[in-house]
Write a protein that binds this DNA or RNA. Sequence first.
DNA 1: ACGAATGTTGCGGG
DNA 2: ACCCGCAACATTCG
Length: 272
Amino acid sequence: MPELPEVQTVVNYLQPLLRDKTIDSLINPNGYKNVFENGQLSSYLFILKGKTITSLTRRGKYILLNLDIGYLLFHLRMTGRLMLETPDIEDMKYVSCQINFTDSSTLFFHDIRKFGRIYICNNLNWLERKLGIEPLSKEFTSNWLYNKLHCHKRLIKYFLLDQQFIAGLGNIYVDEALWLSGIHPKAYSNKINKNRSDKLYNSIKHILNKAISFQGTTIINFKYGQNNIGNFSDELQIFGKPNAPCPRCNSPIIKHYLAQRGTHFCNKCQKY
DNA sequence: ACGAATGTTGCGGG
DNA sequence: ACCCGCAACATTCG
């Protein structure tokens, strides 16, 4: 579930708590196979033991634990949670990794659907190759967006979901940003004129910033810390509201499937 | 009760 | 190049 605002919320929460902690050991209490993307638990343990966390940052939807040497990365995928609080007993079966620190605190990677992944690496070159621009960075400009849209002929929803172009948008914020800018999700990227591209640019930044200030969106699973939820759910205009009246024109919100994802839009005020 | 859907990503195929 | 379908998995909803 977590998209950029949710991942940023987790990073903001954990950053002061994790800084300066030194890794003592790693445990995979339930023996999940696919959690570790770069080898076995034993090699992770060998590399990470004794390493200290200098800071936490975010890149796209990845959480970066910057170590004194190298990096430990988490991707939450659909249901991942990263928490220093101990999960309830009945939730321990969902813990896909446990990191014990030398101060005897423990970081839990809790993940119901087990899609979440953990990476170790010496540098971030592979990640930079994989991911596009940060939508909240100063490199992301209205001209950058307009030019990129016109380099490709993609349905705009596909374009915005593609992490190789813009890193961090997901299903919720794409639907919301397209609604806000009055662009139909099936509009072709190269047919969007400068005016509408600028509107999309402003909508993306506005939605992401606002969602971060509300600690993200909780539909079902997103939580950070012990049990805190994201409050942007109440600010959603169309996502998850099929048949509800469009807040702008009262026409009923349509839900179709695009990219195998539920896609919400107003057929009247979102144009091709 | 059972099939479909859930906020993600990666792959193969047309 | 680009879109589709499916897979990974557990739970909830209609």
